[in-house]
Simulated assay, not measured.
Amino acid sequence: MKEVNTDNHEPHKPWAINLQNVQFRYGKSGAENALNIPLWQVARGERVFLHGDSGSGKTTLLNLLSGVLTPTQGTIELLEQPFSTLSARRRDTFRAHHIGVVFQQFNLVPYLSVLKNIQLANHFAAKRDKDIVASANAMLAKLNLPSDVLHKPANALSVGQQQRVAIARALINQPELLLVDEPTSALDASARDAFMTILLEMCESVEASLIFVSHDMSLKEFFNSRIDMSSLNKPFEGAAC
């Protein structure tokens, strides 16, 4: 198991993530729950376990990487393309084309069918799937879900089933970067381990870079790379230690 070295990657590697002097503060003067990341680079294809205590900035960082937030200072490049400097509309387009996100609460539209939830994600893709039903069925089969869930409303599924549908939705467009936020908090140990195995197999199949955010250190064994937010998020200059 290795701890990611944020300062010592070989310069010629293509980056999935490249953060330079990124700062973020909530409000005009609030230093609490703020981020200060001088440098963070993640190579394409890398699978990173990002851990830290509650309030350490994990979810804030994920929101910056997904474009929900923009940095107060510094730049974020994703897949070797400018990201944080794009307009909100162009960030949304970039996310739809290149990034998959699995939220802690899954964020499925509860009254829509599984198929409609997956179609909604594919609707915003650069290349819409002409046979989305077949693709969705194939994805669900890989996730060990029966085909009859395709036409069930999302809120009729178990938590474990909703979780796997969220993965299917995030991966249906074959994103180059997958961001996953605390997805196993509601699962017991056996369901959690099964979820992790499926998630990593699916990332491998689409060759996606993965940032997996969690405070559950038992999950680190699934990853070759891991980083603690306390080593990534530096104190602000002049801030009290």
Rank of each mutant, 00 (worst) to 15 (best):
S87E: 04
L39N: 12
E32H: 11
Q41L: 10
R90L: 15
E80N: 15
N36P: 00
V42C: 14
G74Q: 02
F83S: 03
E46R: 12
N33L: 13
A31Y: 14
F24I: 05
S84A: 09
K28M: 08
Q81E: 14
L65R: 04
E80Y: 03
E77A: 09
Q73W: 10
P71V: 12
G45Q: 08
L39Q: 15
P82D: 07
L61G: 06
A31N: 10
E32T: 06
L61S: 03
Q23E: 13
Q73C: 06
F49A: 07
E46P: 02
R91A: 10
K58W: 02
S84I: 06
A34G: 14
Q23R: 15
L86M: 11
R25C: 08
V68N: 03
K28F: 13
L35T: 04
N33D: 12
S87W: 08
V42Y: 03
A43S: 13
V48L: 15
K28Y: 10
T60H: 09
S29K: 15
L64G: 01
F49P: 00
T59P: 01
S87F: 08
S29I: 10
N21L: 06
R25A: 08
F49E: 03
V68R: 12
L62I: 12
V42L: 15
D92P: 00
R47V: 04
T85Q: 15
N63R: 13
T72G: 13
V22C: 04
S56W: 05
G27R: 10
K28E: 14
A43C: 09
T59V: 07
Y26G: 03
L19M: 13
F83V: 05
G30Q: 10
Y26E: 06
A88W: 07
N18C: 12
N63M: 12
A31C: 11
F83N: 02
Q23A: 09
L79M: 15
L78T: 02
S87Y: 05
T72E: 07
G55W: 07
E32C: 06
R44S: 09
R25N: 09
R25L: 05
F49V: 02
G27Q: 08
T75V: 12
N21F: 00
T59E: 04
G45F: 07
E77G: 00
W40V: 03
V22P: 00
N63I: 02
V42H: 08
Q41W: 01
H51D: 06
A88L: 14
N63W: 06
K28N: 13
L86C: 05
F83P: 02
L62R: 05
D53M: 12
A31Q: 11
Q73T: 05
E46S: 14
S66H: 00
V48C: 09
L50T: 04
G74W: 05
L64R: 00
E80L: 07
L65K: 06
G55Q: 11
P38L: 13
S56N: 09
S56K: 08
Q23T: 07
T85P: 00
P38M: 13
G74T: 04
Q73N: 14
L62H: 06
N36T: 05
T60D: 06
L86D: 00
